[in-house]
């Protein structure tokens, strides 16, 4: 029996559970027994990307809400966060392009 095809887009790995907290989000990796914490900005970005947002779109929306930070800087932070999440083996797949 073949496994169901993976849906496209960024997603949490099968063994990872996300739990919202007052300050952001905690991610539990049941495979390794480790847990991770995202601050409020990180949680906001991850939720938006898991919901199908593009990195540039998420950065643009965030830049419109905050002061004194360029969209380019936030876009770089989004890409860096994506790299860290993948390196920690918390996410798989690629975010929507656009």
């Amino acid at each position: 029996m073949t496994p169901p095809p993976e849906r496209p887009g960024l997603r949490l790995r099968r063994d990872v559970t996300a739990c919202d907290t007052e300050t952001g989000m905690v991610l539990l990796d049941e495979r390794t027994g480790r847990y991770w914490q995202l601050n409020g900005t990180g949680a906001h970005i991850l939720r938006a990307l898991l919901d199908g947002g593009t990195p540039d779109g998420v950065a643009e929306a965030l830049a419109a809400r905050v002061e004194a930070v360029s969209r380019e800087q936030i876009a770089a932070d989004v890409r860096d966060l994506l790299d860290r999440l993948a390196a920690a083996r918390l996410t798989e797949g690629a975010p929507a392009a656009g």
Binding site: Y35, T41, I45, R84
Partner: peptide
């Protein structure tokens, strides 16, 4: 006020 995103490992599961 913008705070950069932070991902931190905070531990593991007598």
């Amino acid at each position: 006020v913008y705070e950069p995103p932070v991902l931190a490992g905070i531990g593991s599961f007598p």
